[in-house]
C-alpha cells in the first residue's frame, strides 16, 4: 500500500470523526415546550404574533426588544431579543430565533427573518405627485 493511501484513510477517519462531532451542531427547530426542558441554545422557528404587544423603547434600553411568536405547536411565548429591533420586522413571514428559555421568556441572541422578497412585491406604484413632507 502506498503512503498516500495511508494519508487518504487517515483523512477519511478524521472526516467521519468530524461528522459525528458535527452532528451535535445540528438540530431540528425546537418548540417552546422542548426549549424549556433543555438547558442549551436552541433554534425556534415561528410566526410573529401580530396581535400581541411588541416593545422597543430605545430611550430606555436600546438593546431590549420583545415580541411574541407562535411556534410549530401553536404555542405563543414572549421572546426577548437583546439587540436593536431589526428593520422591516413587522413584515416578516417567518422568524427563526436562537437562544434559551429563561423562566417564561425566551431570551434570543440571534434572529433571522424571512421576508417576502422585495422583488415579488406585486404592488404597482402609480406615479403620484411628489408628496410634500411636512416638517
Amino acid at each position: 500500500m502506498k503512503k498516500i493511501h495511508f494519508v487518504a484513510i487517515a483523512m477519511i477517519v478524521v472526516a467521519i470523526a468530524l461528522l459525528v462531532n458535527a452532528a451535535g451542531d445540528m438540530s431540528t427547530y425546537a418548540t417552546f415546550q422542548q426549549a424549556s426542558t433543555l438547558d442549551q441554545k436552541v433554534k425556534i422557528a415561528g410566526q410573529l404574533a401580530k396581535d400581541k404587544e411588541m416593545v422597543y423603547n430605545p430611550e430606555k434600553d436600546p438593546n431590549y426588544f420583545s415580541f411574541f411568536i407562535r411556534d410549530a405547536d401553536g404555542e405563543e411565548r414572549q421572546v426577548v431579543l437583546l439587540a436593536a429591533k431589526p428593520q422591516d420586522f413587522e413584515l416578516s413571514e417567518q422568524i427563526v430565533v436562537t437562544g434559551k428559555m429563561e423562566g417564561d421568556q425566551f431570551i434570543a441572541t440571534d434572529l433571522l427573518m424571512k421576508c417576502p422578497s422585495k422583488y415579488k412585491d406585486e404592488e404597482i406604484y402609480i406615479k403620484s405627485e411628489k408628496s410634500a413632507q411636512a416638517g
Binding site: 430611550e59 430606555k60 434600553d61 436600546p62 426577548v80 437583546l82 439587540a83 429563561e102 423562566g103 431570551i107
Partner: peptide
C-alpha cells in the same frame, strides 16, 4: 449605565451592543 439590571438572568454583556 443603561445596560444593567433590566433583564434578570441575562448576564451576557457581550450581547449588549448598542448605545443610545
Amino acid at each position: 449605565f443603561i445596560m444593567e439590571g433590566l433583564i434578570e438572568g441575562a448576564d451576557d454583556e457581550s450581547l449588549r451592543r448598542n448605545i443610545l
